[in-house]
């Protein structure tokens, strides 16, 4: 990963700190990479463990709300150049066997989080030079029980395309990357491509990480 010579931080956001940490390792950014997680440091989903925040300059909880978390990041490290939103695991469940709560949780922890993070961080990235938002979403495998995952993923992908239209005039590119639950590491090279200085003309696209 080429070092960011702007001195501006990379912010990695997600509802599951284990996923955030895994993506962070793939980004291999310099010391100005910040993890932002809704429930603060520590395992959010129960899948976390020690060492998950290694490599991050800081882990910022969202206990006080997204705007407060974003303001703290900007105050301490500057306006972000990169915002990466991470997907949260979605339990497999047939639609007929699930309730409205399952549906809502899948959307809240994926689409809702991505939208909230962009709502908080994007305005703060304006006017500081080029910036990029990358939204990671799960790639449905086609196996049964992925209706919730697929809906959340599709929504994130289209959110990215729409946001690209809204933010393009501000010099902010927005793309989505789909990745398999079983091969999160495949996101690394694709993130690297999108963070190239020469990738500034890539926006409003959905890239698939990994082969199938």
């Amino acid at each position: 990963m080429p070092a960011d010579d702007t001195g501006r931080p990379t912010v990695v956001v997600g509802a599951d700190l284990a996923v955030v940490a895994a993506v962070g390792r793939q980004v291999r950014a310099d010391g100005r990479m910040i993890a932002v997680a809704p429930a603060g440091p520590g395992p959010v989903s129960g899948s976390g463990g020690p060492g998950e925040t290694e490599g991050f300059a800081a882990t910022v909880p969202v206990d006080g709300g997204w705007d407060a978390a974003a303001a703290r990041v900007v105050a301490d490290w500057g306006a972000p150049r990169v915002l990466i939103t991470c997907p949260a695991p979605v339990p497999r469940r047939h639609l007929a066997d699930s309730g409205p709560g399952d549906w809502q949780a899948a959307l809240d922890r994926n689409l809702g989080l991505a939208a909230a993070a962009c709502r908080a961080f994007a305005p703060l990235a304006r006017g500081h030079g080029p910036a990029t938002i990358i939204m990671l979403a799960w790639e449905p495998s086609g196996e049964p029980g992925q209706v919730h995952l697929a809906a959340a993923s599709g929504a994130i992908q289209l959110l990215a395309l729409a946001l690209a239209a809204d933010l393009g005039g501000d010099g902010i590119t927005v793309n989505a990357v789909t990745v398999s639950e079983h091969d999160l590491a495949a996101s690394g090279p694709v993130l690297e491509l999108l963070l190239l200085a020469d990738a500034g003309y890539v926006t409003a696209e959905v890239l698939r990480a990994g082969t199938r």
């Binding site: 690209a164 239209a165 393009g168 590119t173 495949a186 996101s187 690394g188 090279p189 694709v190 690297e192 491509l193 190239l196 200085a197 020469d198 990738a199 003309y201 890539v202 926006t203 409003a204 696209e205 890239l207 698939r208 990480a209 990994g210 082969t211």
Partner: peptide, 25 residues
Amino acid sequence: AGLAVWLASDQAVALAGQTVLATGG
């Protein structure tokens, strides 16, 4: 050219078969 050179590198494995659209949106 920058994108093409990256796709010629070892890292490109993750994007096999894909067309990276660089359209400015």
